[in-house]
Nucleic acid binder design. Sequence first.
RNA 1: GUGGGUGUAGCUCAGCUGGUUAGAGCGCCGGAUUGUGGAUCCGGAGGUCGCGGGUUCGAAACCCGUCAUCCACCCCA
Length: 422
Amino acid sequence: MSLIKGIKGVKDLLPEETPRWRLIEEAARRWAHRYGFHEIRIPIFEVTTLFARSIGASTDIVEKEMYTFQDRDGTSLTLRPEGTAGTVRAYIEHNRAAIPVPQKYFYFGPMFRHERPQAGRLRQFHQFGVESLGMADPQADVEVIALLWRILSDLDLPGLTLEINNLGYTVDRDTYRPHLVSYLKQHESRLCANCRHRMEANPLRVLDCKVPECRAITEAAPRLTDSLSETARSYFTRVLSGLDLVKIPYSLNHRLVRGLDYYNLTTFEVTATNLGAQNAVGAGGRYDGLVETLGGPSTPAVGFAVGLERVAMLLSASSVEKVPQGATVYVAGFGDRGAVVGLTALEELRLAGFQAVSDFRSVTLKAHLRQADRLQCRFSLIIGDDEVVKESAILRDMKTKVQHDVSLSALSPEIHLLLAGS
RNA sequence: GUGGGUGUAGCUCAGCUGGUUAGAGCGCCGGAUUGUGGAUCCGGAGGUCGCGGGUUCGAAACCCGUCAUCCACCCCA
């Protein structure tokens, strides 16, 4: 009999770490709400072609990282590798374009990518994401970027940096690509093997190669900026001045190229220190063509996603360890009659709104008090056979060791009174 | 998919060039304190040394394989 273990790259979140996650989720929710985003809950799996069409058939995600399987009727389904595709699908399917107010959504949930696990990278990981659909104005970009920045800074993550770039329109990239390729061809022999391949498949990706040799070459390469149309340029300028206005610090990075095909114009990424190699905490951009590619009405859109595991990693390094709230009342019922009365006292306290706990394995008062201490309870309610006879229990303040008799017939009012007094 | 590190008690880790009953700290249980927790002291329990094979008189240690895990490449949030 071999032990059944969890799947590689798929983690359990144990009660010790769950408060940290709640903190992150609450911050994200709070800020999303302030910015006027509403929660959407979309399925965890979809028809495979949705992802192939939106993310891009030649991306790594679609080529080799998706969890794809056959449904019983043979249709190909896949576990979502990201949240945008499903959100857009829902937007189209429910004809949300017809609603005369901006459609601004946020979501939380697990995503699935078959990658080799490492620091900050799992096969089942969690994202918080935001999609702002319908507004083709730079202010919409600013709004989304500001929201991302606000959430992450509110959580006080170390070494946050916002990098931003302008990918222009598809036509802009089409005019730029030949310039880049012909330049790269001249230096082909000095490029890494990977980049030589990328040069054919997706030349823009060569720009964010980390190999120093490649970087040196691309440093002098023709820049996308110089091929951008006037409209693309002025759009980006207005995004930047909007960020200045609302005081979001950023730095330009002309190498910033996203790994998903649907982005255009504004792209951005927030990185942090102390994250190891996977240092992107949140990233996103504008994707004006996606709704239409998926069969919906032409709809401009911007969004981002945040990697929650990565945020959680950073948060552990900083200051979270201050919320281990223990229970307020430990009920120590022991002896034949005390145990019985203890059970009813527990229930009575809970109905009255207290958090009340006990360890039913403990038979002696000593053992009970030890557990009360471990559980960091504020009070212990001692009920032994003697107390049952007297019809009054002993309420012990675990910190001050002060004890009061409280009558068993009026437990919760008397505890309320003592609490109010202290 | 490729490379490297690490697998010894519940946890964190020692264990020298192979040598006899495998250790520490923390945690756990019990006692000192038969109805009063945390501290102290005393005592105790707990290990297929990841798994399989090989070398050897002898393997936790050496060799081969395998699995797990971590980190990096790649990719991305």
